[in-house]
Computed example of a mutant assay.
Amino acid sequence: MSGGRGSGSRSKRRQVSAQERAAAVEDYRDSVGRLQHTAYRNLRQTVAYATIFVAVIAVWMLFIGQATPATFPWYAVSILGGALGLATYFVREPRPRLYVLAVAVVLAVVGVTGMFLTS
């Protein structure tokens, strides 16, 4: 004997009421919503950490004397981007936090690009 499913096993599904189906759909939607919220929060934190990391590297380069008069403004822009990346943790409203994070990313990218182009 094979011990597997019988030939007619597909037609032996459990019947589910409309209320049970609606509850299952609602549970699924809640679950996906929580997953999306967590994924967005993790992405936002990672981007903020990246801007902070760029700022820390820029401060380190200033302290070890790598900044020249031509590169100093770009280091300052990167540090400002990192400060705004850190500020995203203190902004509680979602829309302003998104704007602060976007400005932080733009400043960090502009600062790093300027550093590479002037060195």
Rank of each mutant, 00 (worst) to 15 (best):
M1W: 01
S2L: 15
S2M: 01
G3A: 03
R5E: 13
G6P: 07
S7M: 12
S9N: 15
R10W: 14
K12W: 08
K12F: 05
K12R: 15
R13P: 00
R13H: 14
R14E: 05
Q15L: 09
S17R: 04
A18F: 09
A18Q: 13
Q19K: 15
E20T: 02
R21N: 09
R21A: 11
A23D: 12
A23I: 12
E26H: 14
E26V: 10
D27F: 11
D30T: 11
G33V: 03
R34Y: 14
Q36E: 11
Q36A: 09
Q36L: 13
H37S: 11
T38G: 00
T38C: 07
T38M: 06
Y40W: 13
N42E: 12
N42R: 15
R44L: 00
Q45A: 04
V47I: 11
V47C: 04
Y49H: 03
Y49L: 08
Y49F: 14
T51G: 04
T51A: 08
I52Q: 12
I52H: 03
V54P: 08
A55I: 01
A55V: 11
I57R: 12
I57A: 15
I57W: 14
I57P: 10
A58G: 07
A58S: 12
V59Q: 02
V59Y: 00
W60P: 07
M61S: 15
G65R: 13
G65K: 14
A67S: 07
A67H: 12
A67I: 12
T68F: 11
A70I: 01
A70N: 03
T71P: 04
T71L: 10
F72W: 14
F72P: 00
F72N: 01
W74A: 08
W74D: 00
Y75D: 02
Y75M: 10
A76E: 13
A76S: 00
A76V: 03
S78M: 02
I79R: 08
L80D: 03
G81R: 00
G82F: 02
A83S: 04
A83Y: 04
G85C: 13
L86I: 00
L86E: 01
L86F: 08
Y89E: 12
Y89T: 08
Y89C: 04
F90H: 07
F90L: 09
F90P: 04
V91G: 00
V91A: 01
R92I: 02
R92N: 09
R92V: 03
R95F: 13
R97K: 09
R97D: 08
Y99M: 01
V100Y: 07
V100N: 00
A102N: 04
A102Q: 09
V105K: 08
L107T: 06
A108P: 10
A108C: 13
V109N: 10
V109E: 02
T113D: 01
F116H: 11
L117F: 12
L117E: 12
L117I: 05
L117M: 11
T118S: 11
S119A: 10
